[in-house]
Amino acid sequence: MKYLEDYEIGSRASFGRYEVTREEVLEFASKYDPQPFHLSDEAAAQTYFGRISASGWHTCAMTMRMLVDNIEKEKSAGLGSPGLDELRWLKPVYPGDTLRVEAEIIDVRPSRSKPDMGSTHNRLTVFNQHDEPVMTMLSIGLVRRRPAA
């Protein structure tokens, strides 16, 4: 199990592989972000996007999937998250793109009020298959501390 004490400021990780499909882009947009440029080739052609693009919120959801898969792979003692900061969508994500994540730990803090846990602060960048950054954010993860021996 990977506990709070196992995380080091400055450490980096690269993980994930998420293939964006047209069907999923349309399904997500239909349910949660039904703007025309996420649903119609014709409408998207008249915008900055040029063609159907994934909702930024869909990009967040795909990123969350890669984060959870990585947490499970690392066997992290994760406890969820109180939120994120500085979310930016830098480039459109299109059907056919393949996404991946790079993370850097920028802070590790034991909790002042809950001695059995703490938090990691991470700078996340999501890249497409051309190594172009498409999204950045600062995420906060809650993590258990190592139990006393």
Results as ranks from 00 to 15, higher is better:
Arg144Val: 06
Trp89Gly: 11
Ala29Val: 00
Ile71Gln: 11
Glu23His: 06
Asp131Glu: 09
Glu23Arg: 03
Ser139Ala: 11
Leu87Gly: 15
Asn70Pro: 13
Ala54Ile: 02
Lys2Gln: 09
Tyr18Ser: 04
Ile105Lys: 03
Ile52Val: 14
Phe28Asn: 06
Ala44Glu: 01
Glu72Thr: 07
Asp131Ile: 01
Pro92Ser: 05
Ala148Gly: 06
Val68Asp: 09
Lys2Leu: 04
Asn128Gln: 01
Leu4Thr: 14
Phe28His: 06
Arg100Asn: 15
Leu99Arg: 04
Phe49Val: 02
Asp116His: 14
Leu67Ile: 15
Glu19Ser: 13
Leu90Lys: 15
Arg146Ala: 05
Glu74Trp: 09
Val101Tyr: 12
Val25Ala: 06
Val68His: 13
Trp89Pro: 12
Ser14Trp: 01
Arg145Asn: 05
Ser81Thr: 09
Asp85Glu: 15
Pro92Glu: 04
Arg123Ile: 03
Trp89Met: 13
Trp89Glu: 06
Ala13Phe: 13
Pro92Asp: 10
His38Lys: 07
Ser40Pro: 00
Asp69Thr: 05
Glu5Phe: 13
Met64Ala: 15
Arg145Thr: 02
Ala61Phe: 06
Arg17Ser: 13
Glu5Ile: 12
Arg17Asp: 05
Asp97Leu: 08
Pro92Phe: 08
Met1Val: 11
Lys75Asp: 14
Ile140Trp: 00
Thr136Leu: 00
Arg144Lys: 10
Thr136Ile: 06
Asp97Ile: 02
Val134Leu: 00
Asp107Asn: 14
Ala44His: 02
Asp107Glu: 09
Ala54Tyr: 01
Ser113Asp: 09
Met117Arg: 15
Gly118Glu: 14
Tyr3Gly: 08
Pro82Ala: 04
Asp97Trp: 09
Ala61Gln: 08
Ile106Gly: 14
Pro82Arg: 03
Val20Asn: 09
Leu99Lys: 05
Arg123Ala: 09
Thr136Gly: 02
Asp116Trp: 08
Phe28Ser: 06
Arg51Gly: 14
Gly56Val: 05
Asp85Arg: 08
Ile71Glu: 05
Trp57Lys: 07
Gln35Ile: 02
Arg123Trp: 05
Ala77Arg: 10
Arg88Cys: 13
Arg88Val: 12
Leu79Phe: 11
Phe15Glu: 00
Pro95Asp: 11
Lys73Asn: 09
Met135Phe: 03
Arg65Trp: 11
Met135Glu: 00
Val108Lys: 08
Leu84Trp: 13
Met64Lys: 10
Ala149Asn: 07
Ser111Tyr: 12
Ser30Thr: 12
His38Ile: 00
Ala149Cys: 02
Val101Met: 10
Arg145Trp: 00
Val20Leu: 04
Ala149Pro: 06
Leu84Pro: 10
Leu67Trp: 15
Ser14Gly: 15
Phe15Met: 07
Pro147Glu: 11
Cys60Thr: 07
Pro110Met: 10
Asp6Cys: 05
Leu142Tyr: 02
Ala148His: 07
Val93Ile: 05
Ala148Trp: 01
Ile106Ala: 15
Leu87Lys: 09
Tyr32Val: 01
Glu42Arg: 01
Tyr94Asp: 05
